[in-house]
Structure formats: structure tokens, C-alpha cells
Design a protein around this nucleic acid. Structure first.
Lengths: 149, 149
DNA sequence: GCATATTCGCGACCCAGTCTCATTCGGCGT
DNA sequence: ACGCCGAATGAGACTGGGTCGCGAATATGC
């Protein structure tokens, strides 16, 4: 967890952004989550601190962290959106457990070739894609599924 | 277009749902769109008719059509959601032109094998996935891009 | 035609997310 | 150690998508 918040702190610094208390609070809230989390949850979590973080700030921080590649937005099958913390490494996709919410990153998986083929056959020039995978993680497949949080 | 509305009519019938004027109106509005469309657009379109369709009804109809597999929800890169009309055929993905909004369906593309591999390596049991492709369609790649609608 | 369950439409409501703007504060220069 | 200044914050109003509840309307089977 400290590792996570640390990397956030570092990233902020090297991006020339200020390191403020609210941002620390958001980082901490994110670090405290195992899997995906919603803006609401981050908001709630930071409200409980002595110095509450404003709603707007939470959204702004999430936006910033997204821009820095430290978190990514996921649209759950249910339709509402969540975020997952992730390594700012190259292109990757998320595999989210629909029971406990834990998410793992899966690296490139030969999609590029397929995209090339699609481009060739449709004449489209693909600019971006979104691939999200949902399922049950190894742990939750056993009889007693871990409930989310 | 009549073809599109027809298939909607048929689908409603065979699903044991009533064929009402508002639903026809929504179907017509959808058929009038080349590419993706938002709930708002459908709403506006049906408002202009003599007999206006209520906001709730538009959403309910879209929900129903989605359940019937005639339209599908797409989350645009911008974050807001739209719908695309599609064949109730098997599993497929959408390729959306970010300029003109036109969308084409691309069939299965060897993703299954990759998913199997991911399952094997992560221990996850994948239940569903979402793959959306965005880019420029052949027409919009030429100098004068067709603007949306 | 009639009965009746389905669907509608209105309007109130809810909730995520944005905007504004006065206030605060982090980080740099000295 | 101090002060400056632009970046960042927070409170709350606001917006816009989407839902809910309920009395009225209507599509369908008979």
C-alpha cells in the first residue's frame, strides 16, 4: 500500500504537479482498495478523515491520476463506471472479478494482428479500442466467494 | 429503413411484447440514424412528432430493444454512452467511426482462443467481455470528413 | 366490442459529475 | 526563514442522464 501511494507521489512530482494533502488522501483511499473502486467510494473514504476532501477535488484527482496512467476507468457490465489502479506500463487490458472486484492486468495478447486484419477488410483506420474482461477470479470460483470489500 | 423498423416489429411480436405507437416512433428514430445515436437524440426526434413520446418511454424502449438484441449499448471513448442498431445475430463487436458515427459489426475474430489462454494463465473464469473499436471509416479518412449527422 | 394486463406519460425525483469563484496552500526564489 | 504567485481546493449551485410511481390509455385475446 505504501508502495502504491509512493508511486503516486513520485508520479505527481515528476509530472510537475503539486503534492497536496487532498491528493495524498485520494491516493491512500485508492491504495486501500484491493480491486476496482468507484468515485463514490473514494469520496466516502476521504470524507471520514478529519479534513474532508471535496467532491470536486476527488473527481479532479481521479482525472489527473487517469491522465498520468496510474488509474484507469472501467465500465462495468452493469453500466456504471469504476476505476482500477494500474501500472503506468504500456498498453494493457483489465481482467476484473465480478465477485470480489479484484483486477489483474493482462498484457497485449495478439490483438494487434487482428486489428490489422479488420482494418484491411473494412477500410477503417482504427484509432483506439477498449477491451474489458469480466469473470470470476480463482479464489471466488471456490464455493465461498469473497464478497466485494 | 423500413427493413430495420420491420425487423423491430417482428422481434417485438415474437417476444410477446405489444406493438405500440411510441415503440414504432422509437424504432423509426433509430432507423433514421446511420450510425450510433444517443438516448437524447431519440428523445428529441420523437418529441417532434405530433404525439410526443415521454422521456421514460424512450428509455424503456431502448432497454427493451437492448434486451431483444436489436440495439446495443456502446460506451464512447469520451465516456458518454450511445447505442447502435445491430443484427440480433451471434456475438459480435462494433467498429465505430469517431467522425461520422457510422458503425459496422465485426464478427468473432479469434478472441476466444486468446481468452482461453488468459483463463489458463490467470485462473480466472471469464464470463463476459466488452470490445469496442474506434477509428475513422474509409469515407472519413478522405480530406473532407463527413460530420456526424 | 369487452375485459384486462401491458404500456404510457407526466412530473417528481435521484445521483454522478461539472462549474464557479473566493480562499488556501505548495514550492520556488531570495 | 519569508513571501509570492499560480496551482489547487472546497462549498454549493447546477446540469443532465436516467429512474420511479401512479393514474390514464390501449393493444391484444376472446
Amino acid at each position: 500500500m505504501t508502495a502504491k501511494t509512493d508511486s503516486i507521489v513520485v508520479a505527481l512530482g515528476s509530472a510537475g504537479r503539486r503534492l497536496t494533502a487532498p491528493r495524498r488522501a485520494v491516493a491512500a483511499a485508492i491504495a486501500a482498495h484491493e480491486g476496482y473502486f468507484t468515485a463514490e467510494e473514494v469520496l466516502d473514504a476521504s470524507q471520514t478523515r478529519e479534513r474532508a476532501v471535496g467532491r470536486a477535488t476527488v473527481f479532479r484527482s481521479l482525472e489527473l491520476l487517469t491522465a498520468l496512467g496510474l488509474v484507469e476507468r472501467v465500465d462495468l457490465p452493469s453500466g456504471d463506471h469504476a476505476y482500477v489502479a494500474c501500472e503506468p506500463a504500456g498498453h494493457h487490458h483489465h481482467l476484473v472479478c465480478s465477485t470480489c472486484g479484484r483486477s489483474t492486468e493482462v498484457a497485449e495478447l495478439g490483438l494487434d494482428r487482428t486489428l490489422d486484419r479488420i482494418e484491411a477488410s473494412t477500410g477503417f483506420q482504427i484509432e483506439s479500442h477498449r477491451l474489458e474482461l469480466f469473470g470470476q477470479c480463482a479464489g471466488c470460483q471456490r464455493i465461498r466467494p469473497t464478497t466485494r470489500h
